[in-house]
Design a protein around this nucleic acid. Sequence first.
DNA 1: CTGAAAGCGCTTACAG
DNA 2: CTGAAAGCGCTTACAG
Lengths: 331, 331
Amino acid sequence: MAAEAGVSQSTVSRALAGDPVVSEATRARVFEAARRLNYAVDENAARLRSGRTATLAVVVICRPDEDRKDLNPFTYSLLGTVCAAASARGYETLVSFQDGPENLSGRYEDRRRADGLIVIGTTQNLPAWTYYRDLGLGGTRMVCWGSPFDELDWIRSDNNAGARLATRHLIEAGYTAPACIGSEASLQRQFKERYDGYVEAMREAGLTPRLVEIEEGISREEQGRRAARQLIDQGLPCDSIFAVCDEIALGTLRELSEAGVAVPGRLGLIGFDGIRASANAMPPLSSIQPDFAAAGAMLVDKLLATIAGEPNTDRRVPVTLLARESTRRPA
Amino acid sequence: MAAEAGVSQSTVSRALAGDPVVSEATRARVFEAARRLNYAVDENAARLRSGRTATLAVVVICRPDEDRKDLNPFTYSLLGTVCAAASARGYETLVSFQDGPENLSGRYEDRRRADGLIVIGTTQNLPAWTYYRDLGLGGTRMVCWGSPFDELDWIRSDNNAGARLATRHLIEAGYTAPACIGSEASLQRQFKERYDGYVEAMREAGLTPRLVEIEEGISREEQGRRAARQLIDQGLPCDSIFAVCDEIALGTLRELSEAGVAVPGRLGLIGFDGIRASANAMPPLSSIQPDFAAAGAMLVDKLLATIAGEPNTDRRVPVTLLARESTRRPA
DNA sequence: CTGAAAGCGCTTACAG
DNA sequence: CTGAAAGCGCTTACAG
């Protein structure tokens, strides 16, 4: 390659790396030769020598034995925006889906495979999150979405603002008894934050909060179904529902629909997360949507700041109201 | 590290790589030392020296300017199973989402970043597929899902069998005039295969096929909506619909639903792809589901066979019928 | 079964 | 602005 361009190996390297010190004429000659030979830099050698990997590892935590095709679509959307944000900043992404203890492995930095780690996915896999917490405490650079722990760097939706937005939307639409299907105790800490926001908005409106606590150890959809069943069995002591995530809300909606409860007539319903499937529900589900692109960008930027040893205090992804047909329109 | 274990560098390498030639006692000593020092092999150096990357690149083609969170969920599910299959075979996955010409880059092999390439994603981006076709013709080892071209290795659903399954399901349920919302000309060649299967099943039942051709250049959902609108405007000259993909079927369902057409009473509806969102539709959408895990495994296995220079003739992913509420039950 | 030595293909001080 | 040289941390013949 150096021979083809008629320069030294060093100059080839500098030209291709965009070092401004090489002359324009030389650079052109080198690029032309590279094109002729279909030459590309061996990244293994480059990375070995330079010590930089320009790669971020993205770990998606799954529920044990969960079918890969059935992951929460929220997770997939977040994966997409994380990879896009990394790419926009010149980083490639090494992606893996992990569930059981036998395939947990986050030693990307030690192995010089990546400069740091972004961990996303289901909260419902405590052993996996414990493994990654310990790794992070051991010095691996990482940022999380959905960790049940607070020790490590994380990014989350602005859950308080979103829950207040949802609750006020119900109240402004004329509902006077919004209940919340959610949890104070779930490993998914965002649920508690959303419930707290709901409680605050209710109190401010002079209304009494009502929580239907979800059951643990079953799918989100099934949680929504069972909570709806419970409300139906109690004779529907509410006129609307704020469900703390869309997957739960979709289960709730199906159960209500099968029981013949009219939405939004008899019961208004709003979820949280703004997943795409909520638009396909009937009626289309109102929701609170985080800015997905911002979420991906914030995860990547926080990790890059950590790697560079710079401060980065952004933690909350802004959210907006998606008012669709599962809630009445405000008067 | 070698000092810590009291052996040579060569022996450390052999022990950690699992070379059966090293004695059990030595291996144990090396592993113990690695644990103490928290040592991990520098993969850049290992890969440089050995020439193997144990990595597959996975490229997801997006529609230009498409929001990363709005990709067809089919694509995300396939991404998940591809990564899982690669991981099960000892390969890591370098994932990137590509759309515009400025971020098209598939030179993973040249750069020694990966041993080969799996390309999936939307068919609706001809420049991207053209780029990858040329790359493949130039010798890059790759396998595709969704390419509008036939030149390269590909894996697809068993579209003929699936379409026949769907059509016969409608006929057996008592529908006598199933139409097809699909395409003979779409870049998505799978649509033509599905239409052909529909036509065959219709002919075998002595029925006359009817195609509602989708419009190009709009989203799948919008294609479904417009086709439904067209049928409604024609006074519904059919009693059921086979839509060639779920995203189209969901658009169709929404349009029918807004127009007050009862599904499955006035019109039966079945889609294709078995995406998760179809289960959340109201009524839940019947569909043809490819075996996603098999799809991911077949893509990876075909690529690994190509890399190893071995034959691999598997191309068709088996499909099954998902009979849900959008079609009447067979008598 | 283990060790000494070569070399994978780069980047980067250092020198000019 | 360019080149000669060192060396990143491994793996792998080769020798014993």
